[in-house]
């Protein structure tokens, strides 16, 4: 059985968020985790193309824009992960026959990109004021070659790791909404990572709460 080592590795890098920083989108947010930063913009509910119309709920489209070059397979899979998470938490049946577009622009990639996408997406959806059944956040865990679990790894730590997992966790029950894994690990390690992510998600949800409270407060 692997043992979780000292708490030095198990920490979230400094993280920050700015909401409604763009004037055009209905909701926008930039999320920063260490050096990793992502900009998210949301349009909607708006008119939908007839070919994409769904009669009983809104069509959610997620677009991931890489920093260099055009979107490729990697971006498509990230889009899918984010879309499925958002679909799980958005109450899209309240806006039938309309479109929601979420655009995620990579500003800098220094590891834990997918979790940063998820956090930015949630903040942008909040800013757009779309009805959601719960909030969600993303946490990335890396398992080092010697079995250590690292949360919110940097790009260098990701490279050295044996396995990499990203979980989307909901705010009401702290359950896993989405998981994306890479590399090999045991069932026990997976459960450990989920437990760590659930702990880490509390910090992020607290941050969400603080930032919303700050935003709607009268004083800085």
């Amino acid at each position: 059985m692997m043992e979780v080592c000292g708490s030095s590795n198990v920490s979230l890098r400094e993280f920050g968020c700015e909401q409604s920083l763009l004037s055009r989108p209905d909701g926008s947010a930039s999320f920063i985790q260490g050096d990793t930063s992502v900009l998210a913009g949301v349009y909607g509910p708006a008119e939908v193309k007839v070919s994409k119309e769904i009669y009983d709920r809104a069509t959610l489209e997620v677009l991931v824009q890489p920093k260099v070059g055009l979107p490729s397979v990697r971006e498509r899979s990230q889009e899918q992960c984010v879309r499925e998470t958002c679909e799980a938490s958005l109450l899209s049946s309240l806006h039938p026959r309309s479109s929601l577009t979420l655009i995620l622009q990579v500003l800098h990639d220094d590891g834990s990109l997918l979790s940063c996408f998820l956090n930015a997406a949630c903040m942008a959806l909040m800013d757009a004021g779309l009805p959601m059944s719960c909030l969600f956040c993303g946490v990335t865990c890396a398992i080092h070659a010697d079995g250590q679990i690292i949360t919110d790894p940097t790009a260098a730590q990701e490279k050295e790791s044996r396995a990499l997992m990203t979980f989307a966790i909901d705010s009401t029950e702290h359950k896993v909404l989405m998981s994306s894994t890479k590399g090999s690990f045991s069932v026990h390690e997976l459960q450990q990572c989920i437990a760590v992510s659930q702990k880490a998600s509390e910090k992020i949800f607290q941050f969400y709460r603080d930032s919303v409270r700050r935003r709607y407060s009268k004083t800085l």
């Binding site: 979780v4 198990v10 400094e14 700015e18 920063i32 050096d35």
Partner: peptide
Amino acid sequence: AESMPQERITALKKDETPVEMTDVTETA
């Protein structure tokens, strides 16, 4: 990351936070 305005009401930043690990192994 450093250019993020601190004085805006829409922005918030949190320093590096440790994650509590006390009963993770047991839970798992």
